[in-house]
């Protein structure tokens, strides 16, 4: 068995080695890291992938309409983001379509069941849910498994007290709350993000082992399906498993 880890961002690059080591330890497998740009082997491939990315951009979060009529500037923007890894795309993408796009563009890589493929991305990926609107996602399990860093930071809501203060419109109080409660939520350039990512790497590994999405009810297990920031910081942050799942991994 082997694991391939793809990343499309540069600013956390110092952390990639620890992700590889972590995956190696839990899976006893060969782990290889690639930058996503290594897949874009020719100008034609870049152009066609940029066009496909522009076409899965979400236009409205309450409609499942994708972007059918493309303007050249939309494709150029995607191309610019692909060619310059320090320029993170600000667009919203349909997460399942993104996954499908990767499988369609690189079937030999991402449809290979003998290998766990994980994409670590800065893109904002959303999925259309039963309440008829798109929701931002931290992880989308499947072939390949996709972990979104912006999703980890922005998708799970901050504690309820934060949203209550937001609704009062008291800016100063909100600032004070953010200052005084940093331990309760994740932010950009937060040292805890790499630890949380390891929790989601574990979820990806379990998906691959079991062939199905595997969540746990134990709030301290990395397989817990966290919805709130505080839950992420108690489940994924410690990137450890409950006894039952630990036994399974052995």
């Amino acid at each position: 068995m082997s694991i391939h880890l793809y990343t499309d961002y540069p600013f956390h690059n110092k952390d990639i080695a620890q992700y590889c080591t972590f995956l190696q330890e839990i899976s006893v497998s060969i782990v290889e890291h690639f930058h996503f740009s290594e897949l874009l082997t020719s100008p034609e491939k870049i152009a066609s992938f940029a066009q496909s990315l522009a076409s899965i951009r979400i236009l409205s979060i309450d409609k499942k309409d994708l972007n059918t009529h493309l303007f050249p500037v939309e494709i150029e923007y995607e191309k610019k983001c692909l060619l310059n890894s320090s320029k993170a795309s600000q667009s919203l993408y349909d997460g399942f379509e993104f996954q499908l796009l990767l499988r369609t563009e690189w079937p030999a890589l991402f449809l290979k069941k003998e290998r766990l493929n994980i994409i670590l991305t800065e893109r904002k990926l959303l999925t259309f849910e039963e309440d008829n609107r798109y929701h931002l996602r931290s992880i989308i399990l499947g072939f390949p498994c996709i972990i979104s860093i912006t999703g980890i930071i922005e998708a799970p809501p901050k504690p309820k007290e934060y949203s209550l203060i937001t609704r009062t419109g008291l800016t100063k109080e909100l600032q004070n709350w953010l200052e005084q409660n940093k331990e309760k939520y994740l932010d950009y350039n937060d040292d805890r993000v790499p630890q949380v990512i390891k929790g989601y790497l574990l979820q990806s590994y379990f998906f691959w082992l079991k062939g199905a999405v595997q969540f746990c009810n134990n709030k301290r297990c990395a397989l817990y399906n966290s919805h709130w920031q505080e839950e992420v910081l108690s489940a994924q942050y410690y990137h450890t498993l409950c006894d039952k799942h630990q036994a399974f991994i052995r």
Partner: peptide
């Protein structure tokens, strides 16, 4: 394509990026 719901942090960058000859 019609504008979507408000999202200040994302919209401003994109408005500048997409300013172009249509």
């Amino acid at each position: 394509k019609g504008f979507g719901a408000m999202w200040v942090e994302m919209s401003e960058d994109l408005v500048v990026e997409y300013t172009s000859e249509v």
